[in-house]
Write a protein that binds this DNA or RNA. Structure first.
Lengths: 135, 135
DNA sequence: ATTAAAATGTTATATTATTACATACTGTTA
DNA sequence: TAACAGTATGTAATAATATAACATTTTAAT
């Protein structure tokens, strides 16, 4: 992709860093209160502290919310600097969630216009099915 | 589309009918507790009665859940008999939600395979932007 | 009539998320 | 460096969303 634009430095605050680390090393999406439970030993005691950090991390694109599951996953799509174009596959048995990085898909959706010619600035797509292991 | 397959008759139960009617005539997505408030005069008193009807209505494709808003909208896409392929546009200012019926979009997504060749049995897509009125 | 599936009614509770308010930290610029 | 604005934190209370558990009734097909 040639020389990439320098990422805006979003140096994470203490709570943001703690919560991002937890989500980033988790193999599965984490729910807010699971996160809360896991960071209480680090001094984060209240739901609001978690939600505030989650909101910010979503805003800057470090994590994504899986809307159908009310859970959060670290961004694994290097091209996604902001939370504006997300796609996931979700296994309906084991609940494994994977972020989909498909240039074709993102190009198609970013260019999609509805019948009134309206284009959209963001989207979230969740695919459901059975993962390899569960079939 | 020629002679259509006879729809399986899902005659709605009393609670299902009451709740579907309310959602169907609403110009905007309704939340579960808004529904509850509005049907209490009809004898539906508890959240669970609402959620059970909602679950069934979603299952048979009469309504859809807008996941990012925790709200429910009647299906306005004649081709969608079951809740397996849904796409919406959502205005980030006025929160107007419209179901998108695009043959091209549904064909593209129904045929989408990820990089492992995996196909999915369902999807939900939510586009975000500003509607005509809000721009 | 019997029966299985679906739907209902009711209470209690679990889970997810926000409001309100006070305080502290960070980086910029006058 | 003082003042300021923007961001982040801490804390308590509460609002909003959703499900568990159990008893009963209705529906629709034998």
């Amino acid at each position: 992709m040639g020389i990439s634009k320098i990422d805006k430095m979003h140096s994470l605050s203490k709570n943001q860093q703690i919560i991002f680390n937890l989500i980033d090393k988790s193999p599965e999406p984490l729910k807010a209160y699971t996160i809360l439970f896991n960071v209480q030993k680090k001094g984060i005691k209240a739901p609001l502290q978690v939600y505030r950090a989650l909101d910010k991390l979503v805003e800057i694109g470090k994590i994504h919310k899986i809307e159908s599951r009310n859970a959060f996953i670290a961004c694994h799509n290097s091209s996604c600097q902001v939370a504006k174009a997300t796609a996931f596959s979700i296994c309906e048995i084991c609940e494994k969630v994977t972020e989909i990085s498909s240039a074709g898909l993102s190009k198609y959706l970013a260019g999609f216009k509805d019948k009134d010619g309206m284009k959209y600035s963001k989207y979230n797509l969740e695919f459901f099915g059975l993962c390899k292991k569960c079939r």
